[in-house]
Simulated assay, not measured.
Amino acid sequence: MTIMSEHWIDLRSDTVTQPSTAMRAAMQAAAVGDDVYGDDPTVNRLQEVTAEMFGFEAALFAPSGTQSNLIALMLHCGRGDEYLVGQDAHTYKYEGGGAAVLGSIQPQPIANQLDGSLALADIAAYIKPDDMHFARTRLLTLENTIGGKVLGPDYMREATRFARARGLATHLDGARICNAAVKQGISMVDAVAGFDSLSVCLSKGLGAPVGSVLCGSKDFIEQGKRWRKMLGGGMRQAGILAAAGLYALEHNVARLADDHVNAARLASGIGEIAGLTVATPQTNIFYVEVPPGACDALRATLARARIRATVGPRTRLVTHLDISAVDVERIIAVFTAFFNDWRAPQ
């Protein structure tokens, strides 16, 4: 049985959201200038608001989180330097090797713990001695959330203090840092305390169509403008895009709690299906262990029901502002109906 949906439901990522009518109106009404000259008032406002929100001196608007992270890595590390990074971290695994290819920076991957953190003992073990045979370890990078998991403020405080004591700078890939802060009920400033730089993505759970903001000291951001230009991120009348980011920060942060609730309900509903192992979500991302023999048929069934999902033996499901509580019940019904009919090959 196929349960039809009136519209497409997209569970692949929180990057798939559509700008709301109000966000589009804000974009249309945005005052603009040439941002490369520093003349775009809406971009300038977005940078000021973001820096203040997270407790940094300055900020820089970039087209993507991949670019804002790369700018940070290239500012903290020089040619032949090294950054310590989680094996599952975005800056190591999912950004095309940009640090190595474009920055001549060596990544030193470290196994993530089950909670997404990096053990301090592991960090210590991978810091290289001052010896010409080794790359110079310059930077510790962390990610929050990572795979939907939240790194708590106590751990973040310990990790940044440890890094500082060992002479390392610290960068936080905070693509979903707002999800982490909302989940913990803490301020954005507290969520990023201790880091030298921060990348915040506007186009994931916050619902903007494009853009990320890099935060740091005034000098750090001034230097970052040169790298942004070199990497092709110097945009002109970018206020049209920045207006969407401003709207997202002003209207879409607190509502992230709704995505967390929907993820919890979806995981609970799917978790009642025999034969599936479902992780308990902390925020808006969780994983379902699907029998390999069911993947192709499940993928086809979901598509017929107008549900998009990246189905595999370890299926990631992501809730966001375009998925409602009603949509969640429809998804559960489709999964349930499918596995009621499906039988594992004998």
Score class of each variant (00 low, 15 high):
residue 232 G to C: 09
residue 252 N to C: 12
residue 245 G to A: 09
residue 248 A to Q: 00
residue 269 G to Y: 02
residue 283 T to E: 07
residue 257 A to K: 06
residue 277 T to Q: 11
residue 260 H to V: 06
residue 282 Q to I: 05
residue 232 G to V: 09
residue 264 A to Q: 10
residue 285 I to K: 07
residue 240 I to A: 15
residue 280 T to A: 09
residue 272 E to W: 05
residue 301 T to N: 04
residue 284 N to Y: 11
residue 246 L to V: 05
residue 269 G to D: 02
residue 263 A to E: 04
residue 253 V to R: 15
residue 299 R to I: 00
residue 266 L to A: 08
residue 251 H to F: 12
residue 290 V to F: 08
residue 289 E to D: 12
residue 296 D to R: 15
residue 298 L to A: 01
residue 238 A to R: 05
residue 249 L to I: 15
residue 260 H to N: 07
residue 291 P to D: 08
residue 298 L to T: 02
residue 300 A to I: 07
residue 260 H to C: 05
residue 255 R to Q: 13
residue 291 P to V: 05
residue 253 V to W: 14
residue 236 R to N: 07
residue 283 T to I: 02
residue 237 Q to E: 12
residue 278 V to C: 09
residue 232 G to Q: 15
residue 266 L to Q: 03
residue 247 Y to E: 01
residue 246 L to I: 11
residue 281 P to K: 10
residue 275 G to S: 00
residue 273 I to K: 03
residue 261 V to I: 14
residue 263 A to V: 04
residue 235 M to L: 14
residue 282 Q to E: 13
residue 284 N to S: 12
residue 232 G to I: 06
residue 258 D to V: 14
residue 276 L to D: 00
residue 248 A to I: 06
residue 276 L to Y: 03
residue 259 D to T: 10
residue 237 Q to V: 15
residue 234 G to L: 05
residue 276 L to H: 02
residue 232 G to Y: 14
residue 265 R to D: 01
residue 261 V to H: 10
residue 270 I to V: 11
residue 288 V to I: 15
residue 268 S to H: 10
residue 248 A to H: 01
residue 290 V to C: 05
residue 297 A to D: 11
residue 260 H to Q: 15
residue 301 T to S: 03
residue 286 F to G: 03
residue 295 C to V: 03
residue 288 V to E: 00
residue 249 L to K: 12
residue 271 G to V: 05
residue 234 G to Q: 05
residue 259 D to L: 06
residue 267 A to R: 00
residue 240 I to S: 12
residue 288 V to M: 08
residue 302 L to Q: 01
residue 268 S to L: 11
